[in-house]
Nucleic acid binder design. Structure first.
Lengths: 173, 173
DNA sequence: TGATAATTGTTATGAACCATATCAAATATC
DNA sequence: GATATTTGATATGGTTCATAACAATTATCA
């Protein structure tokens, strides 16, 4: 009885429809069978990614940073003095779409565009003092509230193995 | 000289900018340092997911199936007789957005909406004969061209471990 | 029973994200 | 010095994702 929920209802639809009765006492809110779906790499990968981004946003709510914005700040901090094209392209962001992102970060005084003196077409990107401070706090939040959950969930060794496999896929698939 | 185009300019920016010279012969096409980014779960996960979807689309080019469409066909096959709300919600698709998806699949004669006789509000979903045939071919393509790459890349044991960890994240994060 | 509430598929609509073409200013090329 | 290329930017269109609202149907329950 408890196992047969899905059976009950889809057979209700199937059989009751044929017999025209609707008064059979009902079981539970039966879940669908995922079947082969749960073995599909893309499916599982996408759902995991959504969950992780969701959790990231919750952890960063106080700083109002999206994963993309966080990645920009990290990359600018690690590579000061690079221009928009360089930062955007290594993040896989198209130049036109990067403009609004920077407008946002700059309006919040987290990073700044500086006209380059030796190539006056390009804008050098740097973190402001506030940007550095916010990034420091962001890193702490990510480490303690976000990445730490991975360790709790998988254990240190598995966590590292997972990151390694994902990097391999990202680079060699 | 041929290799150094990109290098010329950006190290020119970093070092030459300070010294004010632009004539130094240049090194290599320097890539940016990813730094902590490559350890960020969300970043690596997203990039891996994009690569996997990209590969999926290439493998399915002959059948013109997106990952989302493939998942719908799989789920309908495994759970015949369910309505739109049930199929959409277990895939995380909002009902309004599911309408156009079904319009597409139905216009290609891959699945059909059947007015339920015991609840005339709802549409029962089923695969058409063509839908079943296409899904069979799709599964083969996915198995031989897509999922098989995972084994080549990671090995059977690691592949299973990866899927398990991703499922855990998707369900418990 | 009949009035009211809830559900189903649908449409309309807007936000967010992604991609292409194009432009002016600046620089590189030859 | 004429031509081509690069940079940041704008405009624009296409997807994807989310919410509100509606008609038809069914459930609820006084």
């Amino acid at each position: 009885m408890t196992v047969s929920k899905a059976a009950e209802k889809s057979s209700e639809k199937a059989s009751n429809a044929a017999k025209g009765r609707k008064d059979a006492p009902e079981g539970l809110p039966e879940a669908l069978q995922l079947g082969e779906l749960s073995e599909q790499l893309g499916y599982v990968l996408k759902r995991a990614q959504l969950k992780v981004f969701e959790n990231f946003l919750r952890c960063m709510a106080s700083l109002q940073l999206t994963p993309a914005q966080f990645s920009v700040l990290l990359l600018v901090e690690k590579n000061p003095g690079r221009n928009q094209t360089e930062i955007a392209s290594t993040l896989g962001i198209l130049r036109p779409n990067f403009v609004a992102m920077l407008d946002n970060l700059e309006s919040r005084d987290l990073c700044a565009r500086i006209r380059s003196t030796n190539d006056r077409r390009s804008h050098i990107l740097v973190l402001t003092d506030k940007g550095k401070a916010v990034l420091t706090r962001a890193k702490k939040l990510v480490a303690t509230k976000h990445e730490s959950r991975l360790n709790e969930l998988l254990g240190q060794a598995n966590r590292e193995a997972l990151l390694e496999m994902l990097s391999k896929i990202a680079n060699e698939f």
